[in-house]
Design a protein around this nucleic acid. Structure first.
Length: 126
DNA sequence: ATTATGACTCCCA
DNA sequence: GTGGGAGCCATAA
């Protein structure tokens, strides 16, 4: 099995962090996507969190924040590394359907082309 | 108090 | 390309 018990901790200030995540997700243009890890790198590590630990755990923090995202957020535009959908089952199919409705194309492995659809962040918006 | 469970990514064989 | 391991806490019932 490639799955093992996931263990991770929350950021020092979960509310602050999730607000950062939501703020960024809100800015992702329609038809574009970003990965959990990429999104995490747009947020500076909280005080007391070594960069090494942050890079390891932040993507999961992003996922956790996304699981609690308020209605209206384009949460479907956040994908796992490699342009894959992380959600499984019906939720995953719903995410794919939403992205396809925005014009994104999935390959045979269920991945999107990050080179083509990837959003580089608010500073690269253009 | 204990138990179950979480929207991830990188690295190496 | 594939598959297993590391990372090592907070929250809800």
């Amino acid at each position: 099995m490639s799955t093992q018990k996931p263990r991770f901790f929350s950021p020092p200030d979960p509310h602050v962090f999730q607000a950062q995540v939501w703020r960024l997700v809100r800015q992702i243009p329609e038809g574009q996507v970003i990965t959990y890890g990429q999104l995490a790198r747009l947020i500076p590590p909280p005080d007391g969190v070594p960069l090494e630990s942050y890079q390891a755990m932040a993507p999961r923090w992003v996922g956790s924040a996304l699981s609690r995202c308020p209605p209206g957020l384009p949460w479907q535009r956040v994908l796992a590394a490699g342009g894959k959908i992380s959600l499984s089952g019906q939720a995953g199919q719903r995410q794919r359907a939403l992205l396809e409705a925005e014009g994104l194309a999935f390959d045979a492995r269920g991945r999107v082309d990050l080179e083509r659809y990837g959003w580089q962040g608010p500073n690269r918006d253009g």
